[in-house]
Computed example of a mutant assay.
Amino acid sequence: MKSPRTTQIVIIAGIVLLVGFLFSQDIKGLVKPKEDAAATMPQEAQTPGLSLAEASATAKNLISNAAAKEFTSLESAFQKASGEEKVNQAKVLAQKWDDLEQAIPSALYLEEAANGQSTLENWVKAGDRFLKAFDNTQDSVAKPVMLQKANTAYAKAIELDSTDLNAKTGMGITMVNGGGAPMAGITMLLDVVKKDPKNFRANMNLGMFAIKSGQFDKAIIRFEEIVQHIKATPDAYFYLATAYESLGKNKEAIDAYLQSKKLAANPTLSNFIDKKVAELKK
């Protein structure tokens, strides 16, 4: 029989594999975990140098020739533009890259837009897209740079408005993930929740961090609050289930897993949960 410690390690490992799947998608976008995503969409652009030109060139190799030509034309217009027009061109390019699930060039163009027009909204959007790039890329060089750029973008947003909860939430997430000041990041997220108890993103990340640190009782309280009073999502139920499972509360875990399956309505996740439920019923 597996020891409780071994069971917790297995569960946490499974969470790490599924976190990108659950957090990088909204309900309508819950399609496949990352290991299966390559079959339906291009892989995330890998950008060791992380310059805008290199990111774009790498991403163009992952899309159709027709789409690549369109980007070349848009980039030419971006280079020739100035002022507000250049900012708008950067936003167009960022959206088009994001539509193709290429978060690195998308984030870099949002950074260009924010540098050209330094507003709270622009820096928060850039930070959010850099966090998406951090979650999506498997490139060991690009990953920490994406996190650092996200942190910098949120810092600039906070300079413009120190009370903005979206910026503080993003900053807290980057601090915890960066390892430099994880407790300070958690404190920042707790402050966000204190001011906005129903802040979904802050609550979800606090719950995730509780699971990763083995504080399963706290995670259960957090995710129960989310699904009952904030927003019942497949990812919230999934993490609630893993927390219950880690404490040996199999009945509660099964119920939460099945709720996740019902809300996601995704074949891959459904198959995973069916196997998990069968194991828990033994």
Rank of each mutant, 00 (worst) to 15 (best):
G172L: 04
N151Y: 10
Q117Y: 13
A184W: 02
P197A: 09
I173A: 02
N122V: 09
L120E: 02
K194N: 04
L206I: 08
A126K: 01
A167E: 04
Q215C: 03
A167N: 08
L131V: 07
Y154I: 10
I158V: 12
P182V: 09
Q117H: 15
I158N: 00
K198N: 10
K156Q: 10
I158W: 01
D217T: 15
N136E: 13
L206C: 09
M204Y: 10
K149Y: 06
A150V: 08
M146F: 10
N122I: 15
Y109C: 02
N203Y: 06
D139F: 07
Q215K: 11
K212L: 12
A155P: 00
K132T: 14
G207V: 05
G207R: 00
T137W: 04
L120W: 01
K218V: 13
A153H: 04
M146C: 07
L110H: 03
T119F: 09
K195Q: 13
P105I: 02
S106C: 09
L165F: 11
F200H: 06
N122F: 07
Y109S: 06
T169S: 12
L120C: 07
L108D: 01
K143I: 14
E111F: 06
L108E: 01
L147S: 04
N151F: 09
G178T: 10
L147F: 02
F130V: 00
T163C: 05
N115T: 02
P182C: 09
G179P: 05
K149C: 03
S140K: 12
R129N: 13
K212W: 14
F209V: 01
D139V: 14
D196A: 09
L131I: 14
T119W: 11
A142G: 12
A126M: 09
M208V: 11
M204C: 06
K149H: 08
F216W: 08
V145Y: 13
K198F: 11
A114Q: 01
M171Y: 13
F130P: 00
A157C: 15
G214H: 05
S140I: 10
D161G: 04
A142F: 03
D217A: 04
G178I: 05
V176F: 11
P144L: 11
E111K: 14
T169M: 15
A150R: 00
A184D: 06
S140W: 09
T137I: 12
A210D: 14
N151I: 00
L160H: 03
M188V: 04
K195C: 04
A107Y: 04
T174W: 00
Q148V: 09
N166T: 14
K218D: 07
G116V: 12
M183W: 07
D217E: 03
N122S: 13
I211S: 01
L131Y: 02
A157K: 02
R201G: 05
M204H: 06
S213Y: 11
P105M: 08
L147Q: 00
T152F: 13
M188L: 11
A184T: 10
N203R: 09
Q138S: 15
